[in-house]
Simulated assay, not measured.
Amino acid sequence: MTCMRKVIDEIYGKETKEGVGAAVRRSIGGGKYSEFDPFLLLDDFTVSPPAGFPDHPHRGFETVTYMLSGRFRHQDFLGNSGVIGTGDIQWMTAGRGVVHCEMPDGENGGRGLQLWVNLSRNQKLCDSEYQDISHKDLPIAEKDGVQVRIIAGESMNVKSKIITKTPTVYLDFTLKPGSKFEQATFKGWSTFAYILDGIISFGGDGEEKDVSRHNTAIFSDGDSVRFINKGSETARFVFISGKPIGEPVCRRGPFVMTTQEEIEQALSDFKNGVNGFENAREWKSKV
């Protein structure tokens, strides 16, 4: 028997400042949801030059940047660089160490989402790597007024090409007025949705909940989520689900490990330029 998920909590993403002058709406990663295993953070960010996220380190998790509009330039201390534009994805595994910058490309800035996905303890010190995916290569499926862009995982029997170290589903849904859909989920996985535009009604069987723009819906456990656009305008949201790791989380700024001792080691490695941070002290970005 199908066990439908329902909305058990709602978070409003209040705008704050992060980096250097960037406007950020944070849901996961703040307040009562400082983490939602395996997710550490979801930011809806808006940047205009000269604002952005200048040189900073990471260790122990993955960052997923999804551009909603505009262009974002990336550069790191390993010699990697590039630009992602509207609809593009960068799935970065920080692993044992990355120092990088993320800044708007061009005069108009941009808007995007950044998701932090935790890594299990035995993966935290893996080699750093990237998956840069153009919007042209992200599969899209459509049915009865519902369109879904499959960033990670599967929907409407269409699968993403992105490989996730921590099992993750990341979908971008657009619903025309009156359209509805039921998305299958893995039972036991942490699942939420962030509304980009319009209002979406989640649930069913008399337990529907309307969730509006800039709000995040936290779901109960179950093996599906039903949703409908009851409004008169097109609505859009991202749907994110992941398999919990079930390990302690110890974090300090851009480092996420499992113990305080590991955090201290990360700070020491970064300061001394060793164990994955060999170029950290000398490198400065040119963006």
Score class of each variant (00 low, 15 high):
164 T>P: 01
50 P>I: 03
190 S>F: 02
65 T>H: 12
194 Y>N: 03
4 M>F: 08
186 F>Q: 14
140 I>F: 05
106 G>T: 06
66 Y>D: 04
273 G>L: 06
49 P>W: 06
286 K>D: 15
133 I>F: 02
5 R>K: 13
159 K>I: 09
122 N>L: 00
19 G>T: 02
61 F>E: 02
106 G>E: 07
184 A>C: 10
81 S>N: 14
233 E>I: 13
82 G>Y: 12
38 P>C: 07
94 A>P: 14
251 R>I: 06
207 E>C: 03
200 I>N: 01
228 I>C: 05
130 Y>H: 12
261 E>V: 00
58 H>P: 01
83 V>H: 06
72 F>Y: 14
248 P>L: 13
203 G>K: 01
272 N>T: 10
282 E>S: 12
14 K>N: 14
170 Y>R: 00
25 R>G: 05
95 G>N: 10
116 W>T: 04
99 V>R: 10
228 I>Y: 00
272 N>L: 14
25 R>D: 01
60 G>E: 00
43 D>Y: 06
180 K>N: 13
253 G>Q: 01
106 G>Y: 04
205 D>V: 03
246 G>M: 10
84 I>A: 14
235 A>C: 09
191 T>Q: 11
18 E>R: 04
182 E>P: 00
227 F>E: 03
276 G>F: 11
140 I>K: 13
148 V>T: 05
199 I>L: 02
71 R>M: 12
255 F>D: 03
72 F>W: 15
196 L>H: 03
69 S>C: 08
128 S>D: 04
182 E>I: 14
243 K>T: 10
14 K>G: 13
